[in-house]
Design a protein around this nucleic acid. Structure first.
Length: 618
DNA sequence: ATCCTCCCCTAC
DNA sequence: TAAGGTAGGGGAGGAT
């Protein structure tokens, strides 16, 4: 049971969404930069990835105001802006969980992000709670990025789903910076119904600090003549990179508090700071305290590591279970590497080991008090091959020699990466067929079908023929519930044990829907012309889904008959890959389709993991 | 000297 | 106590 919680959490967690933002954004960036190269044939080529800025620039720091809460608000048009609302995993009944984001009405009651829900409800009993909606955050974020790219002609550095820097130096030679910022803010609001704030400064640091003054829903510029004064009065806690531990160390050795200003810090002997914080950190801190920021401007930084970890609900009854967790993590990482065409040379295993006798039984699912161990190993070869990485990872796990029952979390990450390399060709790598599948979007002509992916039924298989008559309509209709299709993938109980049937059916249902939507939206999934004319678009899409599910069910049965469990797992991997590939298709899809597919992706993802982990820990 | 490993710290 | 993921940078100290 605990494993279900793990996998569901993993796919639905706010931290996972935030942490994996870069990967989603990269897909968008690639499309953007490719388009830009195309533009440069007609326009003048511009330096997209310039690495440093010596001269003063005009930098905007664009930050969405209480992003998750704003997105939640637009889904609830009946609420006035005066209604306090918070996004949280918990409900007002359970009062468990933390506030992830609170709108400004809620903040007026003292409700803040990070606060426990029971406290938030005590401060503000009428607080409206909204669930996470990751698909929607992604959609809004990319809409905002679209605007920022436009406004800055591609000079946009994405920080997260709700935050970015843009360089508008050249544009602000002829236009007033604040006016430009206000225009961007209006554009963002018009497109997304979400407010953002913009800080303006001569470098990224000053722009970021300016945003603090701009919020909420405003713009603020640090004028060049005011920079000295501005930074001098800035609190140390506001400087980026200056966290809790740095604050404590500083206070211990210098009596300076994080609430003191940069001005104060500069009076401290440099040697004192260095012994407390280290040379590099001191250097950076002192630069920041003078308003200097030498961070390179890089629109598309190269990824240096890629990994996945789990430290929630991890409980291992035996070594085999621990090995299964590791295998599952490696599959996730290898899959991402294959999709991104990245290979690596070094493997890092991270393991949370419970500290004996410390709060041991108090945990429900959390990792509790732990030592965190990490081990690095050079891999036999530059690779992104699932099996190779699994064997290397299991070697490390064995060498760490940790009692399985004390393991509270595991992580796998790959470093020393090489980009753009060819993908592993070993048997495990079925996914490339999917990249082939979706590479076609950008391909000049829509030649289809070297698709060997199990789920990728040919269009012919999916297409209904004109000759199918009204009987078929009735047939299909009988399979439809009021709002949805009925996806029966496994008809016989004997085909698969009933415990797992439900999960697998769920996964394939989601996969089938995603698949059908892709085809539908690409205009390649066709019902008969007559039917298309008589059905509403919604109804048409539903039938198309039902049709696709049917074909996939047949394939699933065939695959199970042929390869048993192995065949099913391969199918599940494909299902996950298929749904994930929606990330590649944002530009092609309608927003409705993209949102649907994103939701199904989550389901396939979690069901897929549940099955693999669950089956091996039975 | 320089690199590497195993941490620690930070941001979002 | 509590949905504790992903990624980057740096330091100490050992290996080369």
């Amino acid at each position: 049971m605990a494993n279900n919680a793990v996998t569901n959490f993993h796919a639905n967690s706010r931290l996972h969404f935030i942490g994996s933002w870069r990967a989603r954004y990269d897909v968008f960036l690639d499309a953007k930069l490719a388009q830009k190269q195309h533009d440069s044939a007609t326009n003048r080529t511009r330096d997209v990835a310039s690495t440093s800025r010596a001269t003063p620039r005009t930098i905007f720091h664009v930050d969405m105001d209480c992003f998750f809460a704003s997105v939640a608000m637009r889904a609830r048009p009946e609420l006035s802006t005066e209604t306090p609302l918070a996004v949280s995993w918990g409900t007002s009944a359970s009062k468990r969980g933390e506030v992830s984001s609170a709108n400004y009405a809620a903040r007026a009651f003292g409700v803040k992000a990070g606060m426990w829900l029971d406290e938030a409800l005590r401060l503000c009993p009428e607080l409206v709670l909204a669930p996470y909606d990751f698909a929607e955050y992604e959609k809004v974020a990319l809409e905002v990025y679209e605007i920022l790219f436009e406004a800055s002609r591609g000079e946009c550095v994405g920080i997260s789903c709700d935050e970015a820097f843009i360089d508008v130096t050249s544009r602000c030679e002829s236009e007033d910076a604040v006016a430009v910022a206000e225009q961007i803010r209006r554009d963002v609001y018009a497109k997304t119904k979400c407010a953002c704030s913009i800080g303006i400064g001569s470098n990224m640091l000053l722009a970021r600090l300016a945003t603090r003054r701009a919020k909420p829903d405003g713009a603020f510029r640090v004028e060049p003549k005011d920079e000295r004064e501005f930074i001098a009065k800035t609190r140390l806690a506001d400087l980026p990179g200056f966290g809790r531990h740095a604050g404590e160390k500083l206070q211990k050795s210098t009596k300076i508090r994080v609430t003191d200003t940069c001005e104060t810090l500069l009076k401290v002997p440099v040697a004192t700071l260095k012994s407390a914080l280290g040379a590099q950190k001191t250097e950076k801190l002192l630069e920041a305290a003078r308003g200097i920021d030498k961070t390179p401007w890089c629109v598309r930084p190269q990824r240096k590591s890629i990994g996945a970890q789990m430290s929630w609900g991890v409980r291992c009854a035996s070594n085999e279970v621990a090995m299964d967790y590791v295998k599952q993590l490696v599959r996730e990482v290898a899959y991402r590497m294959q999709r991104l065409k990245i290979r690596g040379r070094a493997l890092n295993l991270k393991l949370w080991r419970a500290i004996p006798d410390v709060n041991t039984m108090r945990d429900y699912q959390g990792h509790g008090a732990c030592d965190v161990l990490t081990r690095t190993k050079a891999m036999r070869e530059l690779s992104n091959d699932t099996e190779l990485i699994i064997s290397e990872a299991l070697t490390i796990l064995r060498e760490l020699n940790v009692e399985a029952t004390s393991i509270r979390g595991l992580g796998v990450s790959i470093t020393k990466l090489e980009h753009g390399a060819e993908t592993a060709t070993s048997p495990g790598a079925k996914q490339p067929t999917l990249s082939q599948m979706f590479a076609k979007r950008t391909a000049e002509k829509a030649t289809h079908e070297e698709e060997t992916c199990v789920l990728a039924a040919s269009d012919e298989e999916l297409a209904e023929t004109e000759s199918e008559g009204d009987d078929d309509v009735a047939d299909t209709q009988s399979q439809l519930t009021q709002n949805d299709c009925d996806f029966t993938l496994f008809n016989s109980q004997a085909e698969i044990d009933s415990d797992r049937e439900r999960s697998i059916r769920d996964a394939f249902e989601a996969a089938a829907r995603a698949y059908a939507w892709q085809r539908f939206e690409l205009g390649r999934l066709k019902l008969s012309k007559r039917r298309r004319d008589t059905l509403s678009e919604d109804e048409y899409a539903r039938r198309a889904c039902a049709r696709a599910a049917d074909v996939i069910a047949t394939q699933a049965r065939r695959s199970y008959a042929q390869d048993g469990e192995t065949g099913l797992n391969a199918l599940l991997n494909d299902a996950r890959a298929l749904c994930r590939s929606q990330e590649l298709l944002h530009e092609t899809y309608s927003s409705q389709g993209a949102a649907f597919i994103a939701a199904w992706l989550d389901r396939v993802d979690s069901v897929g993991k549940t099955i693999v982990i669950g089956s091996s820990s039975l």
